[in-house]
């Protein structure tokens, strides 16, 4: 069960906002985390606690293919991102590296910054503890669940290479 305080953002949060390109001369997660969301929310890195949850409206993660974006979010301590929709490459990258993403427009419409959310990845149930409301995220296709349950694309591929993948 994931549980954390909500940081809320609007639509089209792009990967330059999540991690500006001027910091992409390194790829260490801890270094990237120091600059997460810097250009749109200077306070984020100082305020975020382990387990906290990002909530945003549509097209979260649009723009560049930099995997540094989900890496920075994960390394900053964020446990999951809930949005109405995600940009395609960001979605792949997050699944591949094991940052849970949940599509749930109802959660987004009924959640404010600072609310506490509880998320069960097994059932997709998202509970807004602050407001006492419960929502269900769109389930992952089976193919992606297999990648997630393997612990990411590298582990999934290792199994496949060893001939054990489904």
């Amino acid at each position: 069960m994931l549980k954390g305080k909500v940081f809320k953002y609007g639509s089209n949060v792009d990967t330059d906002a999540i991690i500006p390109a001027r910091y992409l001369n390194v790829s260490e997660p801890s270094e990237l985390a120091k600059h997460c969301m810097e250009d749109i929310d200077l306070e984020f890195v100082r305020k975020v606690n382990h387990g906290d949850i990002l909530v945003a409206t549509t097209n979260f993660g649009c723009g560049s293919s930099r995997e540094h974006a989900p890496i920075a979010i994960k390394a900053a301590g964020v446990s999951a991102v809930v949005a109405k929709s995600f940009a395609r490459i960001f979605f792949r990258n997050a699944i591949n590296i094991g940052l849970p993403l949940l599509e749930s427009p109802e959660t987004v419409d009924n959640t404010d910054a600072g609310d506490i959310l509880e998320i069960s990845l097994e059932t997709g149930i998202i509970s807004n503890v602050t407001k006492g409301k419960i929502f269900k995220a769109k389930p992952y296709p089976k193919f992606m669940s297999d990648i997630i349950s393997s612990g990411g694309l590298v582990e999934y591929t290792k199994k496949k290479i060893a001939g054990r993948a489904p």
Binding site: R66, N93, V154, T157
Partner: peptide, 9 residues
Amino acid sequence: GMGSTDIAT
């Protein structure tokens, strides 16, 4: 376009 881990695999 996709990510680095995709390219690795």
